[in-house]
Amino acid sequence: MMNFSVLNIIGAVFMIFSGLWSFVSYHKHLLNTLLSLEFMMLGIFWLMSLQSLNIGSEIYLGLFFLTLVVCEGVVGLSLLIYIVRSHGNDYFKSFNVLEC
Rank of each mutant, 00 (worst) to 15 (best):
L35Q: 08
Y91R: 10
V74K: 07
V69Q: 11
S5Q: 06
N32I: 12
E72L: 13
I16L: 11
H29E: 12
S78P: 00
M1G: 07
W21G: 10
L34D: 01
H29V: 02
Y91H: 06
L20Q: 02
L50P: 00
I9R: 00
K93D: 10
F95P: 01
H27R: 15
A12K: 03
M2T: 11
Q51L: 12
E72P: 00
N96G: 03
S5H: 04
I9N: 03
L61W: 09
S57Y: 10
I9F: 03
N32M: 10
L80R: 02
V69W: 01
N54D: 13
L50E: 10
E58N: 09
G88S: 01
V74F: 12
R85E: 04
I55M: 06
Y82Q: 01
L66T: 09
H29L: 14
L53W: 05
G56L: 06
T33P: 05
I55V: 06
N32T: 13
L77W: 07
N54M: 13
V75G: 05
G62M: 10
L30T: 06
V84Q: 06
W46F: 12
I9E: 00
W21F: 14
L35Y: 09
L63G: 12
L34N: 07
S49D: 07
V13K: 04
L79F: 07
I44E: 03
K93M: 02
L47M: 04
I59C: 05
L63S: 11
R85Q: 04
F23L: 15
T67P: 03
G43P: 02
Y82P: 00
V6Y: 00
L30K: 10
L47I: 04
F23W: 07
G19V: 10
V69A: 11
M1R: 01
S22N: 13
L68A: 09
I59K: 13
V75I: 13
I83V: 09
I83Q: 02
W46P: 03
L31V: 13
L77G: 01
